[in-house]
Simulated scan of single mutants.
Amino acid sequence: MSLPTPVVMIHGLWIHSDSWQNWMEVYRQAGYQPLAPGWPGDGGTVAATRENADAVANHGIEEITEGYRRVITSLDSAPVVIGHSFGGLIAQKLLAEGQARAAIAIDPGQIKGVKPVPLAQIRSGLPVLAHPSNKKKAVSLTRDQFHYGFGNAIPEAESDELFERWAIPGPGRPLFEASTANFSKASPAAVDTKNGDRGPLLIVGGGKDHTVPEVVAEAAYKLYADAEATTDYKSFPDRGHSLVFDHGWKEICQFTLAWLESQGI
Rank of each mutant, 00 (worst) to 15 (best):
S85C: 15
V128D: 00
K93E: 05
A157Y: 05
S85M: 07
V8K: 03
H247P: 04
R198F: 09
A138E: 01
T73A: 14
P79M: 08
D209L: 06
F150S: 00
P213E: 07
F255L: 07
F183Y: 12
W39D: 01
I10A: 04
G207V: 06
P155R: 03
E62K: 13
K136N: 09
G151D: 07
Y27T: 03
Q33W: 13
A120V: 02
L89I: 11
A138I: 03
L141R: 02
E97R: 09
Y68P: 03
F150T: 00
P108Q: 08
E51R: 14
A47P: 03
P34C: 12
K222R: 15
V216G: 00
K185I: 04
G44Y: 14
L119Q: 09
L89P: 09
G196Y: 14
A229N: 08
Q33Y: 15
Q110T: 06
I106T: 05
E251R: 11
Q99P: 02
W23P: 00
T73K: 14
D160R: 14
R173G: 01
A217L: 09
V244M: 10
F163H: 08
Q254F: 06
R123E: 08
A186G: 04
Q21L: 14
L260E: 02
G31W: 12
V128T: 10
D107F: 12
I90H: 06
E214C: 05
E97K: 10
S242L: 04
I10S: 03
D160K: 13
P155K: 02
A103Q: 07
A91V: 10
L141S: 01
S124P: 04
A57W: 05
G113H: 06
E164M: 11
A91N: 04
H16W: 06
Q254W: 11
F163D: 01
A30T: 04
W259D: 00
K137F: 06
S235W: 06
A178S: 10
G264T: 05
E177W: 00
L75T: 02
G12A: 05
V114S: 03
A186V: 12
A167M: 11
S235T: 07
P169R: 13
Q121E: 08
K222D: 09
A53E: 09
T230K: 15
V191I: 12
A103V: 10
G98E: 09
L126G: 00
I168R: 00
N182G: 12
G38T: 12
I15N: 00
D76Y: 14
K194E: 11
S140F: 04
S19A: 15
P174Y: 05
I64S: 02
G41L: 05
Q99L: 14
Q110C: 04
V56L: 02
L260W: 08
V215L: 13
